[in-house]
Nucleic acid binder design. Structure first.
Length: 236
DNA sequence: ACTTCATCGTGATTGCAGCC
DNA sequence: GGCTGCAATCACGATGAAGT
């Protein structure tokens, strides 16, 4: 049995189906469901973008929040020349870069690095596949940590382009314009970022390769027993 | 309707020059 | 010497026209 939507609820549902171009005028008039719809739609991209620059979850959340506040307070400034998402992401990016500059002035880089490395779990990679069993979930979680560590180890410039292109799936030109660099530079940085990612992951896994397909201990001894038994049986 | 081929656009790779 | 950006080139997939 489906409940009949009350007007406010119906408005919320209708609003969630609108395009950004349709939502913006509503948001300008202070329409709360429209503002919520915009936030829900762009949260992930903004967080990832901010997280790529900041390397700290809590800080990235702050940045995204500040970016939304700034954007909704200055919606009149959005002329509609570019996509709304582009405008929004650019604000978050500027906010994140400004915060990094402030941090560099007030905090040692090493300290920021420690916060990042030991600050816990993070950069939300998409988990489109549903969990199946605990082992699979554990393996997926380990793989995510591996990737997140590798991303965190990238130099700032490389990390930004890597996240925008490979995590967010932007095109070269779009990502380059977000970062204010030439597309050629974006390509080179992405290529080198991927190379560094490969090296980093290989380093993290170097011990693991030798442990693949283990065949030792009791299993090995049992095999030896069987071979010897077979040979004894064969020789007269 | 299907297959083949040419064209175009986008991304990947690499070499080289300039800078610190 | 290593890092970075630029430019040239290569590779590949998407798309549309032509032929069967």
């Amino acid at each position: 049995m489906t409940a009949i939507p009350v007007p406010a609820e119906r408005h919320r549902q209708e609003v969630s189906t609108l395009s950004d171009a349709e939502l913006v005028p509503l948001a300008r008039m202070g329409d709360e469901p429209a503002i919520r719809a915009i936030i829900q739609r762009h949260n992930r991209r903004l967080f990832r973008t901010a997280r790529a620059i900041i390397r700290n979850d809590a800080e990235a959340e702050d940045v995204v929040q500040a970016a939304y506040i700034k954007a909704f307070s200055n919606l009149a400034a959005f002329r509609g020349d570019a996509q709304f998402s582009t405008w929004l992401t650019r604000i978050a990016l500027n906010e994140a870069l400004a915060r990094v500059r402030r941090q560099k002035n007030t905090t040692g880089l090493e300290e920021i690095d420690m916060q990042t490395r030991w600050g816990g779990d993070v950069l939300q990679f998409p988990s489109s596949l549903s969990a199946t069993d605990p082992e699979t979930e554990l393996a997926r979680s380990q793989a995510r940590h591996l990737l997140e560590n590798a991303v965190d180890e990238l130099p700032d410039d490389f990390r930004a382009i890597f996240v925008l292109r490979d995590v967010e799936g932007m095109g070269t030109d779009e990502a380059a314009s977000y970062l204010g660099i030439r597309p050629e530079t974006a390509k080179t940085r992405l290529h080198r970022a991927r190379k560094l990612m490969r090296q980093s992951i290989e380093n993290q896994l170097s011990g693991a390769f030798s442990a693949l397909f283990p065949f030792d201990g009791a299993r090995c001894a049992f095999m030896a027993d069987r071979v010897i038994a077979a040979l004894r049986h064969k020789t007269p």
